[in-house]
C-alpha cells in the first residue's frame, strides 16, 4: 500500500514585491528544502506552520488539509500539529528548561502524545538541564531543548529551519546524528530547510530545490 505523502504543498504568496511559490509532494523521511538564502525557504515553513497565510494554494500534511484557499480551509497554527524548530531557537526566557519542554505536551490532547517526557529527555540527553534557565544554556544545549519541546507537542511532522546554523562544527555533528535518529528511529517526517550542500547530502532522502529553478 503506498503511504500518503508527508507533505503535499502548492502555495504562492507575495512578500513585498517578491513572489514566493512552492509546489512539491514528499514521501515520508527527511526532505530538504534547498536553496540560497532569500529564496523563501523559511516563508514556506511559516506557511505550513500557519504563521503566514498564503495568497492562494493548498497545504496537506500527513493526509490532512491544513490550508486550502479554494475550499476556504485555514487551520490556526495550534491546530496544525506541526512541530517547528526555529533557526533562532526561541526558548521561552521566563520558563525553565523543564517548563519549556512541557509547554506543548501539557496542551496536547492525550491521544496526540506519542512520546513521553522521560523518553524525550533520555533520547536527547538533556536530563541535567531541566532546572536551568534558557539563558544559561550553550547553543547546542538550547537546540536540543527546542527539538525536545517540538517533539513533546505531539507533532505529525517536524519543520526544521537551519537548525545547525547557530552551532559550532563539533555541535553540528552531534545535532545531525540526532536528526538522523529522529528520522529513522522515531519515523517522523521532517521538512528541513538548509543552504548547506554537505548537510543536505548527509541528511536528506528527498531534495526540493528552491529559487533559481
Amino acid at each position: 500500500m503506498p503511504s500518503e505523502p508527508a507533505f503535499a504543498i502548492d502555495v504562492a504568496v507575495m512578500r513585498g514585491t517578491t513572489p514566493i511559490a512552492a509546489c512539491f509532494t514528499t514521501p515520508p523521511g527527511l526532505t530538504a528544502l534547498f536553496g540560497h538564502s532569500g529564496a523563501g525557504k523559511t516563508t514556506v515553513l511559516n506557511m505550513i506552520a500557519g504563521l503566514l497565510r498564503p495568497d492562494r494554494g493548498r497545504i496537506a500534511v500527513a493526509g490532512e488539509v491544513l490550508f486550502d484557499s479554494a475550499a476556504g480551509i485555514n487551520l490556526p497554527p495550534e491546530a496544525r500539529a506541526c512541530g517547528y524548530v526555529f533557526q533562532d531557537i526561541r526558548l521561552f526566557p521566563h520558563r525553565r528548561v523543564r517548563d519549556n519542554l512541557l509547554y506543548g505536551w501539557r496542551l496536547a490532547q492525550p491521544a496526540r502524545r506519542w512520546i513521553t517526557p522521560t523518553e524525550v529527555i533520555d533520547f536527547l540527553g538533556i536530563g541535567d538541564l531541566l532546572d536551568r534557565a534558557p539563558r544559561t544554556l550553550s547553543g547546542g544545549e538550547a537546540q536540543r531543548v527546542a527539538i525536545g519541546r517540538a517533539l513533546l507537542s505531539g507533532p505529525r511532522v517536524l519543520l526544521m529551519d537551519e537548525p545547525l546554523s547557530s552551532l559550532d562544527a563539533a555541535r553540528r555533528g552531534e545535532i545531525m546524528t540526532l536528526i538522523e535518529r529522529i528520522r529513522d528511529e522515531l519515523q517522523l517526517p521532517i521538512l528541513y530547510v538548509s543552504h548547506d550542500r554537505a548537510e543536505v547530502e548527509r541528511l536528506a532522502q528527498t531534495v526540493v530545490p528552491m529559487g533559481d529553478s
Binding site: A49, P77, A81, F86, R90, L107, A108, R149, S153
Partner: peptide, 17 residues
Amino acid sequence: DSRLEDAARTLGAGPWR
C-alpha cells in the same frame, strides 16, 4: 519578541493561552 508568541502557537497554544 513576537516570535516567541509564534513559537507558542505552533506548540498548540490558542491566542488566549
